[in-house]
Nucleic acid binder design. Sequence first.
RNA 1: GCCGGCGUAGCUCAACGGUAGAGCACCUGUUUUGUAAACAGGCGGUUGCGGGUUCGAAUCCCAUCGCCGGCUCCA
Length: 646
Amino acid sequence: MSMTPLEELRHSASHVLATAILRIYPDAKLDIGPPTDSGFYYDIDLDHKFTADDLVKIEEEMKKIAEENQPFIRKEVPRAEAEQIIRSRGQERYKLGRLADIPEGEAISFYQNGEFMDLCAGTHIRYTAKLKAVKLLSIAGAYHRGDETNKQLQRIYGTAFPTKEELANYLTQLEQAKLRDHRKLGKELKLFHIDEDVGQGLILWTPNGSILRQQLQDFISGELRKQGYSQVFTPHIGRLALYKTSGHFPYYKDSQFPPVVERDFLDQLISSGCSCAEMSNRIDAVSVHLAEKVNKLTGKETITKDRVLPDDQLIDGFLLKPMNCPHHIKIFASQPHSYRDLPVRFAEFGTVYRWEQSGELNGMTRVRGFTQDDAHLFCTEEQVPKEIIGCLSLVKTVLTTLGMADYRVRVGLRDPDSNKYTGDSANWDKAENACREAAKTLGVPFTEEPGEAAFYGPKIDFVIKDVIGREWQLGTVQVDYNLPVRFDLSYIGADNASHRPVMIHRAPFGSMERFCGVLIEHFGGDFPLWLAPEQVRILPISDKLLDYAQALHAQLLAADIRVTLDAHSDKLGAKIRRAEIEKIPYTLVIGQKEADANSVSVRSRAKGDEGVIQVEDVIARFKSEITTRALPVKKVIVPGSAPQKT
RNA sequence: GCCGGCGUAGCUCAACGGUAGAGCACCUGUUUUGUAAACAGGCGGUUGCGGGUUCGAAUCCCAUCGCCGGCUCCA
């Protein structure tokens, strides 16, 4: 495996990090230290817990090692000698396991710099003196081999660049990215709130954030009408049996909110002294009737005998819905369908709830309750390719409209070694092919990733990075041959026989919460006019202009523009400053001159003072900018800093 | 869930064993303003919640909740 020069530099930095750590903490047991996209890390097992002060000390030691200008020397050895080297250095705890990973017949190499020697395939820079710009960034926990049943090690993250300037630039970039963090902007611009009394990962949309979301929903709804979708509404809960039929329960029990058990059952259970374990079994269990039905439809023992209990043993209850599909399926199944009706497309902004582990929650991007811009398409097998392409074009429309170009496309296929997938493999092959072919039409590079499929079918995901480089799946299109079988869906074909439809699940935004989180960061809070919660603010330069200001305010409101009036008795500069901080796209300054001429002085956030314009003209301009969903002009000024006074 | 760090006024932060403070925001006056901060006064905190140590706790200890960075997970 060859490394780029930058990776080589960073990987060498991780060796120097290990060298420094062993100098200060000789008892440290090393695991691995690879380069990453933005730097490097080393995983270390040590009783002493590293602190921020330790990082400073370690970094100083690393500088010394760089100054010592040690050469990196490669040494290839036979396996037995490798083992002996590792033992002699007291590093057998993890390194022997890493040695065992190297296949027989492959070269076993060590790299030595100074007194330090590490099992390593390489490659490296030639001398430590080339490490001129290294910075240790953070300490984190990480499981050995990424397996949570293994011991958790301490991971030290750092980064390195060829020059000090590049490092400084990178660190500045990191700082600036933090200013755009949706959690920070969400608070500053009053877009959303998370309250611990309401619960972790549950978003409260404040008025400003609600405008943003509503605008996006209106936008997508308009696109859906053009594409022949039907709006539906469904409740937030469904009976357990529904999810036992779909297969979502109990397979995903750990990532669902626990079921709501009916009161009668609860009373009964309490009086009968039912144990927790027994209760859990009886909730998970499936009736004889349902098991037989599902097994017959799927043609195999999908629901095993050990999950079946007699009806009087079953505990009924409801589940907060973890997805909308079963509800939409039931709408489809509620009426007979002819091939002439297909495709049937049901759309709903459907709110779902999932029990994410507390440590995984993150602002709006990883939450426990979220609203998918969901839809389910029911079509014939022949219609699948065209429908997938239709869905993809919708996602593209969305991303293009918002100027989001920095995303990647992932075709999620099943993992051939896993048994979590339902349905027969011929259908899987068809569905995977349809996805692959549709992805090719996108005109965007995509990767095929085994193991990324949903349990019921393959999918095409749009993945976008947040300001600190974390990837989030947004839009998704999934092909499903399985749920139609489980729910015994059918339509009458031209041959007057019953046929099985194919389902497509799709959500161009993914979830409103995650999408808005990413969107806030994408725009850094400087939303295009059509999305800005407050589009225009009127700034009278004195109270004497209030009458004119109020008339103007009414006029803009009548034109359906989100406008406010700053009636504080502050100087103009203060009003402008406030509007800038709140990232209001346009301010209209009015003084006597403007009032006399039925005009306004326009100041845009992007360009500053744009001069005096007639009221009718400025309204027309705003309306046009809103209806075309124009993207904001990039500001030249760096975010967060005021322009210098001249 | 796990490892580590952090919770002080609406916001950003100070006080680090000895009477909880500043700026901004907000309210009230004064000011009537021309493109990024007028002036004065006022309101506002059982220091996340609960225990403990101490003459005395925001500060030290324990527990719990929440947040942050990773890890694991993500239908």
